[in-house]
Amino acid sequence: MLTYTIRRLILSVPTLLFISLVIFLLLELAPGDPMAQVPLTVPLEVKQQMREALGVGQPVWVAFPKWLYQFFVVEPQVLFDVVFSTNFSEGKARMISWQSRSPIMDIVAERIPQTLWVVGVAYIVAILMALPIGIYSAYRQYSVFDQAGTFVTMIGFSVPPFFSGVLVIVIFSVQLGWFPSIYDTTHRVVDWDTFVVQLQQMIMPVMVLALQITSQLSRFMRASMLDNLGQDYVRTARAKGLPERSVVLVHVLRNSLIPVVTVIALGVPAIFGGAIITEQVFKVNGIGQLLITAIQGNDLPMVQTLTFIFAVLIVLFNLIADVLYGILDPRIRYD
């Protein structure tokens, strides 16, 4: 398994390079203009000069290697410098966002806390809720609990966050006045009181996101459990006199986790990717909002970098999922 993992890791390097090239070409091809948001009152020649100052429109064979160099050489050096107070990166051009003309990685680092707080917590909450719901719904198929669960999760999944987000704001911020409708990213948690404030501002976006993720996960969990509960080995295990608890929660659950692990592994990169709509609705301004404003402003270096980091995480977590399959079901062999 270890050799397999290492081989896969090495193989993923060319894959990632290829993905980054495809993303690059795609962004080049997509219509758009970083000056589209500049008012029409600014003359066209000035816009052209501004574009040139940013380096817009460089040919692919110049811009792509430059980006690769900056991403893989300059930025790690900068990180090294920051950690060990060295100065390897001095005088080297960093990746610069077209919108703000500041280093991209600095902005990303600024955005990660709020995305982890909100999207990360929502994910954990969702997993903790979805697994028990899925297991119990399957174990008591067509019981009142299962029917209610189906109803709630399906509605939860069909209602898009642009609606559910505004709905909870209208209820909890406008009518009841319990929670703020706008997330304060400058808020620092230092003691219990600030932690409570943080909880208050997190609760609505986490609720909206967790509802969606729970719905999805619990459906897969339920379906997979149902499949396995009917298998012969369950009958055997019961016949052997194993306690029902260990039949369901050890044997059946372990065999049912493969699809769930897949869905979770696909979702973890999304934690980094942020939740575009939910972040917009609550003004969380994390990575998701960064990506969408970069796309709208046609800030190609930013979009390219964010998408590529996202791609690295996708490749990594899918590999982790594959390794987990082998642990969950030792019969799966990859060699």
């Binding site: 219509p31 758009g32 203009d33 000056m35 589209a36 948001q37 029409l40 066209l44 816009k47 796309i295 709208q296 402003g297 046609n298």
Partner: peptide, 15 residues
């Protein structure tokens, strides 16, 4: 989309 419409991308038919 406003980003395309008000953009000056000569390659886009939608400006």
């Amino acid at each position: 989309d406003a980003g395309v419409f008000f953009g000056s991308d000569a390659g886009s038919p939608d400006t």
